[in-house]
Design a binder for these strands. Structure first.
Lengths: 150, 150
DNA sequence: AACAAAAAGTTAGTATGCCAAATGTTTGCC
DNA sequence: GGCAAACATTTGGCATACTAACTTTTTGTT
């Protein structure tokens, strides 16, 4: 009962955060979710990235990105364009509406980011981030199996 | 680019952890996911809890719990039973197989819990947990809206 | 040049998760 | 006792997210 709670704590805290954040976006009449906004930010920074680039940058599987881009495309915030150099690839273009919506989302996201930090000194936040970052080495693309039996 | 990354970091780290953990469970031939295992633990502790009790304890919406219990019931790890005192309520009973499966899951979960902590002194883990716990006050059941305009 | 292997995207299937709405039951108030 | 409000659960709709399998195209090897 003592420390089995770590994973549970992470999961539950993230659930609360996600719900709060997406509700805040809806309340501000933003028409994209947090994850979708991430795509818009990346495309504002550098338009015409490929699907694979985007999925790597936001850290999701290619197949997850397909759905994300589908939804963004349906509402006209991005468009898929054939790559002139590689016929397997698609270049994703953000539209002016997409950029505007991303900017709206950014305000809310910045605010919630600040809310996370309130009440804690910077050193503690650094530790928090350091531990989270360690997950990328520890849990990245590895089945987590030790020497599995048959 | 500096600290907009906090939320992103939390989301992505949790994704890595979840995927790693569920893959570890599959690799160990455990037939339940992490979240399902949480239900089995709670029922082993105290059998016959209601749906509402369970959803509160694991911190998900009632409607999410419906699906979780559906899946556990389908494979025979729990059973729904009518409450004798309140005809609205269902009492969820864990089966011996469910308890056994929960025990199998617990070993893996304990191991991953330890993996999270490796490399960090206890004081840092305490800070980590403290910040996560703050999410429950900050982000609990509140739309996150400030004074939204029309 | 031929052919295998790798890479880019999509699709299908499954599992969380939320919200809103619907159903049935119980409570509280008069 | 009657009726509105609250509660317990489910359903339907949507959004992530993964894995596995599939198609098309490119690369790498001989």
């Amino acid at each position: 009962m003592k420390d089995d709670r770590l994973i549970f704590l992470i999961f539950t805290a993230q659930n609360k955060l996600r719900t709060y954040l997406n509700n805040a976006l809806v309340a501000a009449n933003v028409r994209v979710t947090f994850v979708q906004a991430g795509i818009l930010f990346l495309l504002k920074q550098s338009n015409g990235r490929t699907m694979s680039d985007l999925s790597q940058l936001i850290g999701v599987d290619n197949s997850t990105l397909t759905g994300l881009v589908d939804r963004l495309e349906k509402v006209g915030f991005v468009a898929r364009q054939a790559s002139p150099t590689d016929r397997r690839s698609l270049l994703i273009q953000v539209t002016p509406e997409g950029i505007a919506e991303g900017d709206k989302a950014k305000m809310i996201i910045k605010r919630v980011n600040e809310e996370i930090k309130t009440g804690f000194p910077p050193e503690e936040m650094e530790i928090f981030k350091k531990i989270l970052r360690s997950f990328f080495e520890k849990f990245n693309k590895n089945t987590g199996s030790r020497s599995e039996d048959g």
